[in-house]
Design a protein around this nucleic acid. Structure first.
Lengths: 108, 108
DNA sequence: CCATTATGCAACCTTATGGTTGCATGTCAA
DNA sequence: TTGACATGCAACCATAAGGTTGCATAATGG
């Protein structure tokens, strides 16, 4: 179960991969070739990154002739957000609240 | 600027470090010794992980005598959520919307 | 003061990771 | 059919990452 969360966090850990997600966010359904533009590495390296993103289901693909089209899948990120980040958001709000109470107390 | 985002994503990439954050979420202000409980590695390894978390400002510390107390800092996670995840949340809702429209279209 | 406890620092090892090069495969278009 | 194009596969390399062991330092409590 948590194996997939692992893969997602891992995939997001690399800047180049986040950049690729950004590219897909800007324009969905790009080919490997397109995605290689402005990436300072070989096509093979980009391909490996995309494979990792696909493994984490952050990217889904489908073949069209000899081209492989890449699409963003926002679901895993949403899951991370829902079952992981929300928890810390809570403690953040609590911390803010504590701070506010503290300030109130000092005011008197 | 993005250097810090990098550090945060990197820190979150490791399961042991996420576990440490969870522990702090459950009980804030723990010592290194306490945090070592149930971690299947040496104290030094845990210490390194905490140093990384501290480097990403996900954890802040303060010394009390010979003990180092560790506290969760939810701010970096919130920043990631705000300026990174929110964007993908948008495309997720769009995707859902497109799907809905598609279904509506087919119904007629 | 001294033994104990809590932590840090540094060297070292193994494996994972990100990258490269070279070649193979499959599809398109002339 | 053939050459060019889009991609995949595999071997290889350098460095980073996660872990260990051993020793140093500093506070605590009897």
């Amino acid at each position: 179960m948590s194996r997939n969360e692992d893969r997602v966090f891992n995939a997001l850990a690399d800047g180049s991969r986040r950049k690729l997600l950004d590219k897909l966010c800007a324009k969905n359904g790009q080919t490997l070739g397109e995605l290689c533009a402005h990436m300072k590495m070989t096509r093979q390296a980009v391909s490996k990154h995309l494979a990792l993103l696909e493994g984490a289901r952050l990217v889904v693909t489908h073949w069209q002739g000899r081209e492989k089209l890449h699409y963003l899948n926002p679901v895993p990120i949403h899951e991370i957000q829902a079952r992981w980040i929300a928890k810390y958001e809570l403690s953040r709000l609590q911390a803010l609240d504590e701070l506010k109470t503290e300030l109130e107390r000092k005011k008197r």
